[in-house]
Structures are given as structure tokens and as C-alpha cells.
Simulated scan of single mutants.
Amino acid sequence: MVNRRLATRGLALGVLTASAGWASVARAGSYEDFFLGIALDRPGIVAPLLAKGFDVNARNPEGLHGLYIALREHSFDVAELLLKHPQLEVEATSPVGETLLMMAALRGRLDAMKQLIDRGAQINRPGWTPLHYAASGTEPAPTRLLLDLHAEIDPRAPNGNTPLMMAAGFGSVDAAELLALRGADVTLRNQAGLSAVDYAGKADRSRLAERLEAIARRGRP
């Protein structure tokens, strides 16, 4: 944790330096302070800025939304503050198309996911989806939440990956089993010809691979 905080402080200092040319975005110092408060997870820095009218949807020099950064960097106290703001753009995306809901799902923040969804964040979308990101996380709860809210179970990412493939290779074993039990197609393959069983095997999850193979043979959970 100490090393993480030191690294985060270094990131914050980098933001201060890199954003020197962005002073016109807001009153002098507000822009820098906003992203410093996010990096250090200090609502006490961010809240007064928002109260004075600072744009909650401001982006850093890399084009990343403040809430996206807060979720990605585990600055969850600031994330909670930003989520409550009435002007928050719930469908804000990163330059590569990642949504706020995707990052909340990846980080396992059920509270943030529910708030974003209640405010209109899309569960189903073309390409990479929140379910792909939930399935890649360390806990099954985000996957269960999205499935309960009627997330499409086998959406295909641009490379052909499904949420089940992501869970089998990178996420929670429980999430992979949950997806399989809810009816995810175990037989699907991505553009590289890999299936969920292959991903489980590459991740040295032999029991999961056997379970998925059994489901594939039966053709149903």
C-alpha cells in the first residue's frame, strides 16, 4: 500500500506538470487540484472545486474522465463523491471506448455499478461490454449483477472474445462457472481459434477446463 501511494503521488506530480498548458480549462489551479485530489483519493480537495462550479466531467491531458481515473486507481472515496454529482456524464468513455460502467465492473464496485445503471448507463453495447470487464475481475458479484439485469451473455468483442473466455482465462473461476451455468456458449471460439476451455487451460485451471469441457459435450449446463 505504501509503495502504491508513493507511485500515486508520483502520478499526481506528473499530472501537475503535464497539465500546465491546460490552465485555460478552468480558473488557475482548479484543473490541477481536481486531478491531484483524484490521484490522492482526497474528497476534501475535490468537493470544494465542484461546489464552486468546476466541471465534474473534466478530462486529464490523456482524455480520461475524472471518475474513470478514480475507479481505475482505486480512489473510491472520490469516486463516490463524483457519482453523486447531478451533471455527471454516465456514458463518458475513454479514448479507447471504455465506459465508466466497464471500469466499475472491472474493479468490482457494485455500488458504483448500480448508481451508473440507475442513471442510464448502458449494460449492452457493441464490442467490449461491461460484462466482459466484470468477468475479467476478481469477484463473481459484478457478473451476477449484470446477468440479473439481462446483460447479453455471449457478446463478441472485436477479437471474438466472450465474457466466458475472459473469466476462464483472467477472471474469477466462480464467474466462469456462473456464466456457464447461466447458459454461456462454451463452444464459441475467438478470432485466434481459442475457446473458453483453451483459456482455462492456458491459465492452469485444469478443473475449470474439465468442467467446461463436460458442459460443451452435453451441449447445456
Rank of each mutant, 00 (worst) to 15 (best):
M166R: 15
T143E: 11
G29L: 00
L71H: 07
L106Y: 10
T93G: 00
G97Y: 05
P130T: 01
G29A: 04
L6I: 14
A203F: 04
R42V: 01
H132D: 02
A157S: 10
L88D: 11
D154F: 02
A47C: 03
P163F: 11
A51C: 06
I38K: 10
E98V: 15
G160C: 08
G21V: 02
E73L: 11
R189H: 12
R9I: 12
D77M: 15
A192N: 13
A168E: 00
G137Y: 05
L101P: 04
N159Y: 13
L67Y: 06
R211N: 07
P48E: 00
G137W: 02
R4L: 13
A167Q: 05
N124E: 03
R107W: 10
A203W: 00
P140Y: 06
L50T: 01
L101V: 13
S24H: 15
A18Q: 14
Q191G: 12
V2H: 13
P86A: 04
H150P: 09
A214C: 09
D118N: 04
E89W: 01
D77K: 14
E32P: 05
E32R: 13
N159S: 08
P163W: 07
R5T: 07
G37F: 09
S94R: 01
G120Y: 01
Y31E: 12
H74I: 08
M165V: 01
A209M: 00
R109Q: 15
A167E: 04
L178F: 00
L106V: 05
E73K: 09
W22N: 02
G169Y: 05
R59I: 02
A216T: 01
R217M: 08
L164M: 09
L178D: 05
G53E: 12
A121P: 10
A157G: 00
R59V: 15
L16W: 10
G66K: 03
L11F: 11
D118R: 08
L16M: 14
M103N: 07
A135P: 06
R218W: 09
L188Q: 08
A12R: 14
E177V: 08
L116M: 06
R205Y: 06
H65V: 09
R72P: 01
G201F: 03
L82T: 02
V25L: 13
A47L: 05
A104K: 11
I123A: 07
G137K: 04
F76P: 00
